[in-house]
């Protein structure tokens, strides 16, 4: 038990910041992101024995959080109350407010989720193409194409060639 707790604490300390930021770029809301991190770690505690290799921990936790986010929409769907946003709502952020960064943060919110998500994993946390492909259970080539398009779309948006617009998508 003591050993399990130690192992768990290491996981919390090592990855809570990453998971929070990932959650933020999944849901776009600070409070929900915090909840998602909490839920992810509660689940991780229960299943800690199924994590055999510590090197896989980051991918494992990321997968759990992704699943928790999907579960959130299942609950909402049942209530017929909300639809999932493909683009994220904008929320005030007080971090790094240089104009070029603000413009990009806004563009990232508008970027469809299938492009945004792999980009977050690659740029923010340095996941390899193989790791991303495994987490999404997608072929490596598909992930490569999405990353390619993600950067193209952001470039074109910032250059004024092709504007990203708010898109709502049924789940």
């Amino acid at each position: 038990m003591q050993e399990k707790r130690l192992r768990y604490e290491n996981l919390v300390n090592a990855y809570n910041s990453w998971l929070y930021r990932y959650a933020y770029w999944l849901c776009g809301e600070k409070a929900t992101s915090e909840d998602l991190v909490q839920e992810t770690y509660l689940r991780a505690w229960r299943f800690l024995d199924s994590l055999k290799d510590e090197k896989a921990a980051k991918s494992w936790l990321t997968t759990i959080l992704r699943r928790e986010n999907a579960r959130r929409f299942e609950r909402k769907q049942l209530a017929y109350s909300e639809i999932e946003l493909d683009s994220l709502p904008s929320e005030r952020e007080d971090f790094d407010t240089r104009p070029e960064v603000l413009a990009l943060r806004n563009a990232l919110r508008l970027l469809p989720k299938k492009y945004r998500e792999p980009l977050v994993l690659q740029v923010l946390e340095g996941f390899s193409l193989e790791e991303i492909a495994n987490i999404f259970d997608l072929p490596r080539n598909t992930v490569a194409t999405r990353l390619h398009r993600a950067r193209q779309k952001l470039r074109k948006h910032l250059n004024g060639e092709e504007q990203l617009v708010q898109v709502n998508e049924l789940p």
């Binding site: 300390n13 910041s17 930021r21 600070k30 790094d96 960064v101 990009l104 943060r105 952001l154």
Partner: peptide, 15 residues
């Protein structure tokens, strides 16, 4: 710049 834009601040004491 993408990195800076993505790197939002984490609430204090989250861990």
């Amino acid at each position: 710049n993408i990195y800076q834009a993505l790197n939002v601040s984490v609430p204090e004491g989250l861990g």
